[in-house]
């Protein structure tokens, strides 16, 4: 009996490893398909629309509220040390370095990643992917590659919008409502936030863009082609993307700001 559970553990481990291998092979094929979007840029435009434009509202509104909350919370903490003028620094640093890329990635995983998984999964379940293959069209290049690059391009832009809107939200609350000095808000921010911080944030969100779209596309492409399979894949896509984003965020933060 104990041996059986050990065997089950081994089977599970091998299965996970095999999935990981397939996911990497798929990513490789997707990335190599870049020629397809150079030949048909319209495919890419449509996907930037699906992933970027359609996520704009939720990202913008979330950014505004996160910035406003940061402004409120930060003010009460900083005011205790008599450092309310540093509010701008606090809001901008946390948004640009962390919250912008991470929260945007989580929102995109929920808003666009799940839709991608469901779309690809249903295309597989309804034999549309096989149909394309039979028309001598490579579904990886035609269907997956534009979605991948669309996500990778849209993510940093969305994260930048999130951070910018968030800073404005913090500004409205801090300067508008709580009476922090406007000059101090901006000047301290500009003195303490580096362009390197902004660059690090962009690099992070590029990595997250790869992670979120890759997981979403793989889950869809690898789905069990039944309605239950697609629904499980969609859930898994969001959960795995969120976990991997948070884990990778820790590693990236340690690499970028640790040294």
């Amino acid at each position: 009996m104990r041996l059986e559970s050990l065997a089950r553990l081994g089977r599970g481990g091998l299965g996970a490893l095999e999935r990981l291998g397939r996911a990497h092979l798929l990513l490789f094929a997707i990335v190599l398909g870049v020629g397809e979007i150079l030949r048909r840029p319209r495919l890419l435009t449509a996907q930037i629309f699906n992933i970027g434009v359609l996520s704009l509202l939720i990202v913008g509104v979330s950014g505004l509220f996160v910035g406003m909350v940061l402004g409120l919370q930060g003010y009460y903490v900083l005011a205790q040390f008599g450092a309310a003028q540093s509010l701008g620094v606090m809001v901008a640093t946390s948004l640009v370095r962390e919250l912008g890329p991470v929260v945007t990635a989580l929102l995109v995983a929920g808003r666009a990643g799940s839709a991608l998984t469901a779309e690809i999964g249903l295309m597989k379940a309804t034999e549309q992917l096989s149909g394309l293959e039979m028309m001598a069209v490579d579904p990886v290049r035609r269907i997956l590659t534009p979605r991948f690059y669309g996500g990778v391009i849209a993510m940093p832009l969305l994260a930048a919008i999130f951070s910018a809107v968030g800073v404005l939200g913090g500004y409205f609350v801090g300067v508008g409502l709580l009476g922090v000095d406007e000059g101090a808000f901006w000047s301290q921010m500009q003195a303490k936030v580096d362009f390197d911080d902004v660059m690090d944030g962009i690099v992070k969100s590029l990595v997250f863009g790869v992670i979120v779209t890759w997981i979403a596309l793989f889950e869809g492409y690898d789905t069990v082609p039944t309605s239950e399979g697609v629904s499980r894949s969609t859930t898994r896509s969001v959960v795995h993307a969120a976990l991997v984003v948070l884990g990778v965020d820790f590693v990236l933060t340690a690499l970028m700001f640790g040294g």
Partner: peptide, 13 residues
């Protein structure tokens, strides 16, 4: 495959 057509059960449109 360009010289083969296949009709799927579901149509696969």
């Amino acid at each position: 495959r360009r010289r083969m057509g296949m009709l799927f059960q579901s149509g696969a449109l």
